[in-house]
Design a protein around this nucleic acid. Structure first.
Length: 640
RNA sequence: GGCCCCGUGGUGUAGCGGACUAACAUGCCACCCUGUCACGGUGGAGAUCGGGGGUUCGAAUCCCCUCGGGGUCGCCA
């Protein structure tokens, strides 16, 4: 019965022109959006079309919440006044596609629904037609219930139908629109660059596309339009941007998908400050525009040196919504009779830590659970020191200390730590002794964990900063050569040019990141535009002239034709939208994302291709896996 | 590749060695109901517990393997 043709044909004539609203020659479905109707529309005859969100059948009266992209409105079907429409409403089930002609009316006194934006009115149905039936959905569309992610992705088109999910894409649209308007007003051109481009051996693994015309050769999908945008600068465009899709064949995370979207931009005849100022202006405008509820410190956003943030936060993307800055007490290590400290210091390590406010109240069990964060970062452990009792820090006595390592720690070290972190009694000192890299990583993880436990990261605050003066290189132990921290075209700071000859590891670059609430929001650099500097960098990267020519010949050649000084930045759109919408991961703001194992359960991608296709490409399969078909378990309703 | 969490009717959960012939809510189906808005009432159908193997008199419950989802480290110039 439900899915019979009868239901389809239970119809009124398709709505056509009455009251001059509609043209006879054209089929019209709606004159208004359901979610837009308000008291002021009372008395109007409207034509609505949407999905049945929920039906309440009282035997005689039937209420249907009709949903479209703008929201819900209640439609009333009265068998006395509109028997035909009522008969249609009896047939209707959730998610049927329905067209209704009716009159907007104020609801009878006492029946208004304050929980609904359109709750002061209802539409009294005169005519109704089922435009399409629907199977019972595999999960609730009309309720906010957590659903298995695989199932959501399998039926992503239904998942997206949920209003809360829908809303995130409204935000995404507005972010894109804001950016385009902002950059347009400043003379930027939006220029598209190829998706089929060239594989470059650095960086992430490429997604490859085989060439039919040149069997055995491959295009690569861009990891970012990096080189192309630099060539646009050589081409004289001066201000370029693109909301660009990027592809990286690496493992997924909550904030990483195989394909993601960047605001990519590049400018000529500018220096670092110009880029930072631009991004600052963009975000300082966009954040209040999209999230007026957020507290945002006035510009300028802090511009912090890399060395400084590593020292104070242990990370290059600090969350500066809260304090708990790190302090170094390596110098006080020798005051303790502790073999661990001796060994660490002898090996060039550090003793650093921070103070968790009120953390002295943590149980032994709670403190022990922190050890895992240190171990995850390759550290051996942590030392906790609870500061008890009353009075100032200077008066601390051994009786005021509670620590598993009590007997190894000197009061000098504990007091020093407390003073340098500004700790008070009732706080918990957390110390890590390790090589600098490990100590930083562990303390960063601990600091974020403590912030979460102590509720210090206020979700109503947007704390932005720039991190600048990144090192140009770091040493690759496995390759026994220098590696670019950013990428090989990143310019050194002018005052550090000489260091390229004497001490490359000390050279700082004109690379910068934009950080918002501990999230890397954007990153970029000023590029090298002079040949001799570029050659020196390639040399330090262990790249012979021929190899550089082979890999980057097109870039080097272009730069010989008058490359302007230039630089740019790329901002993560997915992460930005996730931030604005409070989404816990970027899948929530990508219309059709993939699972953690890079599978699209809706389309069933990736999939095998026909032997003919492979033949044309000159490709033989030497290794293959069975790709799982989209999950079984389609809706059962039609089977009953 | 490592580690952690998860996988029970359509959906969300409970059950964690025997009373499970697997419970609850919701959804679904039928009937009733003129103002509800997560409408209400009555009745009904629906899962062998991701898959495989093992332990046991007995397994949804314990063990091993495996598949899938999520988180994270490695990786992501």
């Amino acid at each position: 019965m439900r899915h019979s043709n009868e239901a389809q044909n239970t119809h009124i004539r398709l709505p056509a022109g009455r009251h001059g609203l509609l043209r006879e020659t054209k089929v019209h479905y709606k004159t208004h959006y359901c979610g837009d109707l308000r008291k002021g529309d009372s008395g109007q005859e409207v034509l609505l079309a949407g999905w049945v969100h929920r039906r309440r059948d009282h035997g005689r009266l039937i209420f249907i919440d009709l949903r479209d992209t703008r929201g819900l409105v209640q439609v009333v079907f009265n068998p006395k006044t509109a028997p035909e429409a009522h008969a249609v409403a009896e047939q209707v089930r959730n998610e049927y596609v329905l067209c209704v002609r009716g009159t907007v009316s104020p609801r009878p006194a006492g029946t208004e629904n304050a929980g609904l934006p359109s709750g002061e009115v209802e539409v009294v149905a005169g005519e109704a037609q089922i435009l399409n039936t629907a199977k019972t959905p595999p999960f609730y569309i009309n309720e906010e219930v957590e659903v298995d992610e695989l199932l959501r992705l399998r039926y992503r088109y239904l998942d997206l139908r949920r209003i809360s999910v829908h809303d995130r894409f409204a935000v995404r649209h507005r972010v894109n629109k804001y950016i385009r308007d902002f950059l347009d007003a400043r003379g930027f051109y939006e220029i598209e660059t190829p998706i089929l481009t060239k594989s470059t051996p650095e960086g992430a693994r490429d997604y490859l596309v085989p060439s039919r015309v040149y069997p055995g050769n491959f295009y690569a999908l861009p990891q970012s339009p990096q080189q192309l945008k630099q060539l646009l600068m050589v081409a004289g465009f001066e201000k370029y941007y693109q909301i660009a899709r990027c592809f990286r064949d690496e493992d997924f995370r909550a904030d990483r998908q195989a394909e993601f979207t960047q605001l990519d931009l590049e400018m000529s005849f500018i220096d670092q400050k110009d880029i930072l100022d631009l991004i600052e202006e963009l975000y300082a405008g966009m954040i209040p525009a999209l999230r007026p509820d957020l507290k945002l410190a006035p510009v300028p956003f802090p511009r912090l040196a890399y060395d400084d943030v590593m020292r104070r936060y242990g990370t290059d993307k600090p969350d500066i919504r809260y304090g708990m800055e790190l302090a170094d007490v390596t110098d006080l290590g020798p005051t303790c009779d502790f073999a661990v400290f001796r060994d660490v210091i002898a090996a060039g390590g550090q003793i650093r830590g921070f103070a968790a406010p009120g953390g002295a109240a943590f149980t032994r069990r709670e403190i022990d659970s922190l050890t895992q964060f240190v171990e995850d970062q390759g550290g051996k452990g942590l030392i906790s020191v609870a500061l008890l009792g009353e009075g100032g820090i200077d008066d601390l006595t051994p009786e005021d200390i509670r620590s598993p390592m009590h007997r190894y720690l000197s009061m000098e070290l504990i007091k020093g730590m407390a003073q340098r972190t500004g700790a008070k009694r009732g706080d918990l000192l957390i110390l890590v002794a390790d090589e600098p890299k490990v100590a930083s990583a562990a303390l960063d993880a601990l600091r974020r964990e403590m912030a979460a436990r102590l509720n210090l990261a206020d979700p109503q605050v947007a704390a932005c900063c720039f991190v600048v003066d990144f090192p140009l290189f770091d040493w690759s132990e496995s390759e026994q050569r220098w590696d670019s921290v950013h990428h090989p075209f990143t310019a050194p700071k002018a005052e550090d040019l000489a260091l390229l000859e004497t001490d490359p590891g000390k050279a700082r670059s004109k690379a910068y990141d934009f950080v918002i609430n501990g999230m890397e929001g954007a990153g970029g650099s000023i590029r090298i535009h002079r040949r001799e500097v570029q050659e020196k960098v390639f040399e330090l990267l262990g790249m012979a002239r021929e190899e550089a020519q082979y890999r980057f010949g097109h870039m080097l050649e272009a730069f010989e034709y008058g490359a302007p000084p230039h630089g740019g930045i790329a901002a993560g759109i997915d992460r930005t939208v996730a931030f604005f919408t409070g989404a816990p991961n970027i899948r929530e703001v990508i219309a059709f994302p993939k699972t953690q194992s890079a599978y699209d359960p809706m389309m069933g991608a990736p999939s095998p291709v026909s032997p003919k296709q492979l033949e044309e490409l000159g490709i033989a399969i030497t290794k293959s896996t069975e790709v799982i078909a989209p999950v079984e378990g389609a809706p059962q309703a039609d089977l009953q």
